[in-house]
């Protein structure tokens, strides 16, 4: 039997804020297999990012246990790299140096690092920017640098917290293709947080719907890859889209009218 990439047992997170006690996650039990592309979807403020931070080791749970490849998680680790919604490209390092630093932290020998930096930058289509400062790049390009840096760390699990949220449609599509290609080549386990249903249908093998700090649905998506925008016309995809929208509490006005 394969050891799960991530295993959560009876996990709960409670915050004590100014507004009082807030139950962010409640009794989560979850197993994610190696190589799975899992999307966590749910309305804002329902616990998606909290769950991701707990898996990353950036937040200690109030109760429960987290295992990564069978070992208890006690803090952040290179085995679970994370790409954030915020811009985390280090502006004081040139683009190539950002990727190189991840390789250095991984313990890669200096002579190998140069070739690997060039390879990861090429994977994200930024070979020509190795010597540039991050401020000289657009938001989408900087997000590609983050991706190259995260993949250069060679994690077992890649966690992505609404990474493409603030980007335009065209840039997002390009980044989706890059993520899928890198995932296909390197077969990392990816846990991806979003509240975008179309992004979910395009990327996920498995969808976990989170509401009020609980996993309320666990769905498998078997649509053939590569997936394109044509998927929007697939009857099964349309049905899945409706189901997810219902889970998110989005009311389709046309269907609501028919129901009346």
């Amino acid at each position: 039997m394969t050891t799960p990439a991530i295993e959560l047992r009876d996990l709960s997170v409670v915050f004590n804020g100014e507004a009082g006690r807030v139950q962010a996650l409640s009794n989560i039990n979850l197993t994610i297999d190696p190589g799975e592309f899992v999307v966590l979807i749910g309305p804002s403020g329902q616990g998606k990012s909290t769950l991701l931070n707990v898996i990353a080791g950036l937040l200690k749970p109030t109760e429960g246990e987290i295992l990564a490849h069978g070992e208890a998680v006690s803090g952040p680790s290179r085995e679970r790299a994370m790409v954030f919604q915020e811009d985390t490209v280090f502006p004081w390092m040139r683009v190539g140096a950002n990727v190189d630093w991840a390789l250095k932290l991984r313990g890669v020998a200096p002579d190998e690092r140069k070739a690997l930096t060039a390879r990861y930058l090429e994977e994200v289509g930024l070979s020509h920017t190795a010597g540039a400062w991050p401020r000289e790049l657009s938001g989408g390009m900087r997000k590609r640098v983050s991706l190259a840096t995260a993949f250069a760390a060679d994690p077992e699990v890649l966690l992505m917290d609404e990474p493409f949220g603030p980007l335009d449609f065209v840039t997002r599509s390009t980044l989706h293709s890059i993520v899928i290609r890198l995932w296909s080549e390197e077969r990392k386990t990816i846990v991806f947080v979003t509240h975008d249903v179309d992004e979910t249908l395009l990327l996920a093998d498995r969808v976990l719907v989170i509401r009020h700090g609980e996993i309320v649905d666990d769905l498998r998506l078997d649509f053939a890859r590569p997936r394109t925008d044509d998927l929007r016309a697939d009857p099964d995809a349309i049905a899945m889209r409706r189901r997810l929208l219902d889970q998110l509490g989005v009311v389709d006005p046309a269907r609501a009218a028919l129901a009346r």
Binding site: A56, G57, L58, G75, P76, S77, R78, R80, A81, M82, V83, F84, E86, T88, F90, M93, W101, A102, L105, R106, S146, T149, A150, A153, P155, L159
Partner: peptide
Amino acid sequence: AFEEFAATLGASRRDRLRH
């Protein structure tokens, strides 16, 4: 977010302070 990203890349507290 900078330090959190670095921590998930494997940077120690000392690495994060320096870099």
